[in-house]
Amino acid sequence: MLAKRIIPCLDVKDGRTVKGVNFVQLRDAGSALELAEFYSSQGADELVFLDITATIENRGTMTDLVRSVARRISIPFTVGGGIRTEDDVERMLSAGADKISVNSAAARNPGLLNTLASRFGSQCVVLALDARSNPLFPSGYEAVLDGGRTPSGLDALSWAREACDRGAGEILLTSMDKDGTKDGFAVDLTRIISSNIDIPVIASGGAGKMEDFRTVFEDGMADAALAASVFHFHEIDIPELKCYLRQSGIPVR
């Protein structure tokens, strides 16, 4: 049976992880490579690297990181953040990323999804969709851009459907209402998107305890769940989480 995936997300700036990673196991707590290897050995099913490097000059450090991660770890990983053009995608895939995620650039130029899917294949094109509740939109959620700063005017569900039709292979769905709250995933939002499109949905934002993962899989119909700080701060241990989910009847690797 297809397993539900657990995906740690690493924010990377100038080639190093941020968000106060605090692991005694690591020689260098800021090393994205070491952290990736650690999560991989803990049974993470995939990894997401989000490039939050502010300046274009330092973007090359991400390519170097992707190259070393691809050499060292044997599970799939996605690279996102600052990917705007075909060339950006080509650079990340040829460095060894399995998938790339596009966010604001795709919302501003939806044709980018068609171009990427036909050139590189849908399996490596992830749409990162940040949504915030807004009763003025038919689904109850609006897609927001630029890390939540800019309203897109797009209904989250219709944008998800459009992205799917244009060739996105997966949706990384982040709830801007829940992100950073540790209050649980946005189950309602996740269910609305996941049950209405026929590509996998990764739920993101709000993970605080192990039960939250169970709920977003069972009630939110998520195919995968992503979290950052609960893993980075060792509040949730991946082997323990998987054991808990297995005992709850959820298929995990």
Partner: peptide, 15 residues
């Protein structure tokens, strides 16, 4: 074939 809640591609870890 898509439908009946099955998503395509078949993506992820399976036994």
């Amino acid at each position: 074939r898509r439908g009946a809640g099955w998503k395509v591609p078949h993506m992820g870890w399976n036994t």
